[in-house]
Amino acid sequence: MKKMLLATTLLALSGGIAAAQTVRLGTEGAYPPFNFIDDAGNVAGYEREFGDEACKRAGLTCEWVTNDWDSIIPNLQSGNYDVIIAGMSITDERAKVVDFSENYFPPADSAYVGLTAEADIKGVVSAQVGTIQAGYVAESGATLLEFPTPDETVAAVRNGEAAAVFADKDFLAPYVKESNGELTFVGEPVSLGGGVGLAFRQSDDELREKFNAAIQAMKADGTVNKLIEKHFGPETKKF
């Protein structure tokens, strides 16, 4: 019996080799409306729909896996998954360690959110660790308070730990809208980064080209704009 179990396990582990290569998409699953775990326990959001469509057009079988944000690049490099699709902005700094696809979300605004419109954005400002927003806050002269998940950065403002949170405007907008006036945008939005792109290992050019072709096609026929409007509302920037 034991041997049988072992044999089945080995077979299952090695069985897939002959079949078509599955592409594993790594996401954070905590960044609505880009990506989040819905109440059925599946990855959902804009990137879920976008990614599934892109995989279909590229003729690939894709599988979704979640990974903490702060280790999302190291785990791509060690091969736990093949693509990062996690609302990751294209920056020069990241481009040194991973290769980006074309952006599938236009360069968007980042914004401050606080309890009042006069919140001190040069005081303590929370941001998610390892994001372009965290880098911006650190350079702005404010005291940066970092958290591992996006949700905690907003919670820090609610419980008074931080005067304001700095994050993607599209991520913050639903929180502000649904807070019944508790939260409000502070100051002017700031444009950061070169849009959101898929990240690949630098040795994976072939896979990147497949996705680039799919993204271009989806931009050309308006699919991307339609999906953005569906998940982010009509006011969001589009291509």
Partner: peptide, 24 residues
């Protein structure tokens, strides 16, 4: 080892890249 990347041939991945998430 290519810089920071750890890259073995696809057949040597454990579990193989195409096996179901449950095996991972």
């Amino acid at each position: 080892r290519q810089g920071l990347e750890f890259r073995v041939c696809p057949e040597a991945k454990v579990p193989s890249g195409s096996s179901a998430q449950i095996w991972h």
